[in-house]
Nucleic acid binder design. Structure first.
Lengths: 119, 119
DNA sequence: CGTAATTGTTACGTAAAAGTGCCTACCCTA
DNA sequence: TAGGGTAGGCACTTTTACGTAACAATTACG
């Protein structure tokens, strides 16, 4: 049963869209991260959503999951080479979004969470 | 009640995301369109979703709604100057999506609707 | 007079996405 | 032996997005 896209943009948004994937991806753009590290960087995400989104990104080939066989467990996530091809796109989306927030609200700082990503 | 974004990408996706906005926008990239014309170009969209999405795009300043005062009614939608600033972004999203479909399924033609947009 | 043409609205129902709470496994250390 | 630290699973509820179907307004035309 072949799902059809109206237009290829939809395929991209299926990969990078949703409530949490953009943040996760942007953090991983700045380098490999452990699970708990991501949770700290994105305080409002729940354990469930975090792992769920990471699984989907992994499935789409965007990130690599690196498991260290030790106790307590250690797992790292990093952008794959393929995922890296999203870098420019995400950057453009960031820039445009910033302009849009500014255009809509007058300034950005009240509408962006405190985060190393928003500096 | 200030909604906060984790990252500005989210603001962009709020504007161009969802099930129908990308298609609508891409059609409007090719020029002004009447309501019925859009409905024909996007056969599976319902009247309700079409107008709902158009209203939101208008509200965000992305498109202009041009009403001709005549009967039967005539309304046209066109990309605004501001909306035009999304052109490059949508184009990149298209390109990446095409590659992704190809990478995932082997070819694109079985996964993209017949449409002047997919040529 | 009744109907077609065009754009749009509204109330309601369904399906998909996100959130909550509690549970597991493992070894180490106090 | 009880608890900490790390990653993650599962059942269930809530919220949001999307879809369906019927209705409105206006004028021209047969």
């Amino acid at each position: 049963m072949t799902k059809k896209y109206n237009i290829s943009v939809e395929a991209t948004l299926e990969v990078i869209g949703g409530k949490w994937k953009p943040v996760i991806l942007c953090h991983l753009m700045n380098g490999k991260k452990r699970t708990g590290e991501l949770k700290r960087l994105i305080p409002k995400i729940t354990q469930k959503m975090l792992t769920q989104q990471l699984r989907e990104l992994e499935h789409d080939g965007i990130i690599n999951r690196i498991v260290y066989n030790q106790v307590p467990p250690k797992v790292e996530y990093e952008l794959s080479a393929y995922g890296n091809s999203l870098r420019e796109i995400l950057h453009s989306l960031c820039i445009w979004g910033e302009h849009h927030i500014e255009r809509t609200y007058g300034d950005t700082k009240d509408y962006l969470e405190d985060s190393i990503l928003n500096q």
